[in-house]
């Protein structure tokens, strides 16, 4: 194969892997926003907490990686239920601004707790996957990248089936559509909200664990969530397919930009591109590719 094409496909491949992580993070935000209209600013902290939890499960308790992943997801889901019950439910009916401030407070609380419990050091996740790379027709991908793609695909398919065909999934979509009417249909909106927070936190946990595999684990991991914001805005805040496509698109764009432009201008392009996309998007299509064209006054 031509070397230029191989280079492009290589960038595309690793871009998709990064994009999957963005998509998972974005999905966590979108799930909560779609159902409850809350932007949860503590989402990044959940990612970071999950990374720590999984790290200690694997290193201190010697639990194999995949069981540890499942345990971490369950723990995160419980944390989600608890958060909704104790922090967000009393805020029901309060102004949006107040609720947003509460989630910011929550993020500070989580970060401090992580500092107290897990310390402020940089930790390195013991790589659970063999380090030899896979070659697919000239493109080289690490096993971690492959696993990221596979897990994201499995998770998203599971979500799709759940929302499309299950009774609870349907009730959740109804609640997202019109909460009051959903109440009248006998849907327990409280239970739907608990479940949505659980699902969102579990998704964040998966994202956090795989991030831990490609980055160092420290409190700063929480800020990765911010770099997923362009993906969220690109997809539209209330669209689940949007979160996935937005995540993948941002991952690919930043990798391509980094691959081609870094040689010319020097490093750092990769980190900037998502936000350039964000800027342009906010100027021309502020509700995202799949978002609703609705104006809300806050």
């Amino acid at each position: 194969m031509e070397s230029g094409l191989v280079f492009f496909l290589q960038l595309l491949g690793s871009g998709i892997a990064v994009g999957c992580l963005y998509a998972l993070i974005a999905l966590g935000f979108v799930l909560i926003f779609k159902a409850t209209e809350i932007v949860n600013f503590a989402q990044g902290e959940v990612i970071m907490l999950s990374a720590f939890i999984c790290y200690f499960l694997v290193t201190t308790f010697h639990i194999p990686f995949f069981p540890a992943l499942v345990i971490t997801c369950i723990a995160a889901a419980l944390l989600g239920v608890l958060t909704e019950r104790l922090v967000l439910r009393p805020m029901l009916g309060e102004p949006v601004f107040a609720v947003v401030m509460v989630t910011i407070g929550l993020s500070i609380f989580f970060r401090s707790m992580a500092g107290i419990l897990f310390g402020h050091n940089n930790l390195v996740f013991p790589n659970p996957f063999p380090s030899e790379t896979l070659k697919l027709g000239g493109i080289v991908l690490s096993q971690t990248q492959i696993w990221i793609m596979v897990s994201t695909f499995v998770l998203i398919t599971a979500f799709f089936i759940f929302f499309k065909y299950s009774r609870i999934g349907l009730a959740m979509r109804g609640t997202a559509d019109d909460q009051r009417v959903a109440l009248l249909m006998g849907v327990s909106v409280k239970r739907v909200f608990s479940l949505i927070w659980a699902l969102s936190f579990a998704t964040a946990a998966v994202a956090g664990i795989f991030l831990a595999n490609v980055m160092v684990i420290n409190l700063g991991l929480a800020f990765v969530a911010i770099s997923a914001f362009p993906a969220i805005v690109l997809g539209g805040l209330e669209s689940i397919p949007g979160a996935i496509i937005g995540g993948l698109a941002i991952g690919i764009i930043e990798n391509l930009a980094g691959g081609y432009l870094d040689q010319m201008i020097g490093g750092g392009i990769k980190d900037v591109t998502p936000f350039v996309v964000l800027f342009l998007l906010l100027m021309f299509r502020p509700y995202g590719l799949f978002g609703k064209k609705e104006i809300e006054r806050v």
Binding site: L170, R173, G174, A176, D177, D178, A182, M185, G186, V187
Partner: peptide, 19 residues
């Protein structure tokens, strides 16, 4: 006429049977 706008007609009916 508060239908669930993003749901199909069948899904609207099914959500009525939620209980």
């Amino acid at each position: 006429r508060r239908v669930f706008r993003d749901l199909t007609v069948l899904e609207n009916l099914l959500i009525g049977a939620h209980t």
